[in-house]
Design a protein around this nucleic acid. Structure first.
Lengths: 112, 112
DNA sequence: TCCCTATAAGTAGCAATGCTATGTATAGCT
DNA sequence: AGCTATACATAGCATTGCTACTTATAGGGA
């Protein structure tokens, strides 16, 4: 998959898999891979900085734990994160409808 | 609309409106605005460089004309551009299905 | 024992690309 | 004369995902 198509959509996807349940970074990567049929196989260099960005923005918060000797930073949504996710879902509806219409050369539906 | 969501999708949209019919840059902007229900109101600083990028990539080619005193550079698809458009349409199907599934927390369809 | 893989987190620096701001120019209307 | 719409163009910026690399533990196989 071309890399750039994900730009601007990653944050919403991260929020969505964390809304499903709190996860640590590595589990987020696996959830994205499984939930996309293998399309989104993201490197740690993509996901970890993105999670830190979302935490800095107050949309998620994290806590440390240690499981079988491995440290885990587990992230969960904040209230602001849940609101942001709702906005992202709505924005995605509009965006994907517009792109689909344009790609297929269909006229934009006049009546909503 | 947040700016970054368009990244990586603009090229496909440009190819699509030029596949509909040959257009000059200004007409491309209007076609994108009309075809998206006003969502994609792109500045010239986005569209003109993108068209030059596509031409440099051999996906479109341009020719000058003058209409009512104003010069126009009209772009049309090349054969490579038509192939690229077909790929973009296919890639968009996969991408949008994956994003929709993840955003809604639905399991990825096991059987295609 | 040693090596390899999977798990787990992290960063520095790069590359791509859309946007802001700005500049040039013509047509037509008031 | 001035304003708006039309029309093209570019320099430089900001964002963001990726590449490459580092550190560390657990567990299986040679």
């Amino acid at each position: 998959m071309r890399a750039e198509v994900l730009k601007g959509h990653l944050d919403g996807l991260l929020l969505a898999v964390l809304d499903d349940e709190p996860r640590h970074g590595y589990a987020v990567i696996e959830a994205l891979r499984a939930g996309s049929g293998g399309q989104f196989d993201l490197p740690t260099g993509t996901v970890y900085p993105a999670l830190r960005r979302l935490e800095a923005a107050g949309l998620i918060r994290s806590g440390w734990s240690v499981v079988t000797g491995r440290r885990r930073r587990t992230y969960r949504l904040t209230d602001a994160g849940r609101r942001a996710l709702a906005e992202q879902r709505s924005a995605w509806e509009d965006f994907s409808a517009a792109v689909s219409a344009l790609l297929q050369g269909q006229p934009w539906p006049a009546a909503t």
